[in-house]
């Protein structure tokens, strides 16, 4: 395989697995929580999303809620999860994993809502 092809393949693989386009993430309220990483995998007919959320505050435990919206290939919202509460201890990361319960989901959006203090 030529070096150009190898480079292109590596780049496309990296893009496919990183999947960290900011359009996939929305933070509502104060930005006291970071979405460090998020990516998706196709598991059979379902889409699985993994995201890592971080509380980079050394003093405060953060309690917030998140929701994932599932979109089809036309960008139409076809399902969303319930808002789920989650707590992250001081200076810790938490991984969340969600699977679309329905087939034909092509993309997702993670919405994090942080309450005002």
């Amino acid at each position: 395989m030529s070096p150009t092809k190898t480079a292109l393949l590596s780049l496309s693989l990296a893009l496919a697995f990183s999947g960290c386009a900011s359009k996939n993430v929305t933070i509502i309220g104060e930005k006291r929580v970071d979405i460090v990483m998020h990516k998706s995998f196709q598991e059979g007919s379902l889409l699985k999303v993994v995201a890592e959320l971080e509380n980079d505050d050394f003093d405060e435990v953060e309690g917030f809620v998140y929701q994932i919206e599932w979109y089809d290939m036309n960008g139409i919202l076809i399902e969303s999860t319930a808002w789920k509460p989650i707590t992250i201890h001081k200076n810790q990361k938490v991984q969340i994993v969600e699977t679309s319960g329905i087939p034909n989901v092509s993309t997702y959006k993670i919405i994090v809502s942080v309450p005002n203090k």
Binding site: V65, Q67, S80, T81, A82, W83, K84, P85, E98, T99, G101
Partner: peptide, 25 residues
Amino acid sequence: AKAVETLTADFGSTDLQSTAETMTQ
């Protein structure tokens, strides 16, 4: 309808929804 409800500590709509989603997945 999908908002987190924390009115009391009793088993509520958020618990029902999150349980169903976790078990289904």
